Simulated scan of single mutants.
Amino acid sequence: MSGTVRGEAELRVNGKRHNVTIRSADTLLRVLREQLGLTGAKAGCENGDCGACTVIVDGAPVKSCLMLAVEGQESTITTIEGLGGDTPIQKAFLEKFAFQCGFCTPGFIMVCHALAHHSPQADEEVIQEWLQSNICRCTSYAEIQAAVRSVIPPRE
């Protein structure tokens, strides 16, 4: 494309620094998948509705299809690959069968992981609010809620 401005950027992803070449309009999702080979964040709706592309940026869940890659230059970005497969919420998703086809699972895990760190004493209302950011089309949310509840026990 003529007139497309490309530039070098440095992104800190999963504890490593990566030099990437980006256009000003490139989303973080596209750079993660196409340049860094991190395909855990899924390209679902690509308009911020489904949450399949959720990553953690500076401790908060972010829909990477809505964030420009250039905005991530001074941030710490964690993808599902960066969790390493052994976090409490990942184990809970397996134990509670909180997945079916698996397409939405990385996004849900990232939201739930951030929730557990942000609000380890979350009540049902807070959990429901956080889970509303993601959509699953093939499993019931009961298993996902059970996984979250096993990591964030109810308040007494």
Rank of each mutant, 00 (worst) to 15 (best):
G7M: 11
I135V: 13
G82M: 00
E71P: 08
V111M: 06
G84M: 10
C65T: 03
R30A: 12
G102E: 08
G85Q: 06
R23I: 00
A60W: 12
L83H: 02
P106A: 09
L32N: 06
I144K: 01
S140L: 12
I77N: 00
I56R: 12
T87H: 08
T87V: 11
P88Y: 13
P88S: 12
R6G: 04
G7T: 05
G44A: 07
C138P: 11
H18F: 00
E125M: 10
V111Y: 06
G15C: 00
F108G: 12
T87I: 10
Q121R: 13
A69C: 02
R137F: 14
M67E: 08
T79V: 05
L36H: 14
R137L: 15
R137W: 15
N14Q: 05
G102N: 13
E10I: 13
Q145D: 09
C138D: 11
E143W: 13
V57Q: 04
S150W: 04
T105W: 13
S119D: 11
C53F: 08
H118E: 14
A60V: 06
R155K: 07
I89P: 03
K16M: 04
A92T: 14
P120M: 05
L68G: 10
A142Y: 14
R23W: 02
C65G: 05
I89Q: 12
E10R: 08
P154T: 08
S140N: 10
P61Y: 06
G107L: 07
S24I: 08
R33P: 11
V70H: 10
G15I: 00
T76F: 10
S150F: 12
L11R: 01
Q35I: 00
V148N: 03
P153I: 03
R155S: 07
A114L: 01
P154W: 07
Q100M: 15
A25N: 10
F93S: 11
G59N: 02
E143D: 15
G85N: 03
I109P: 06
A52D: 05
C101F: 15
I109Q: 09
C136P: 07
A69G: 02
L131V: 01
I152P: 02
V55H: 03
T54V: 11
S140M: 13
G51M: 04
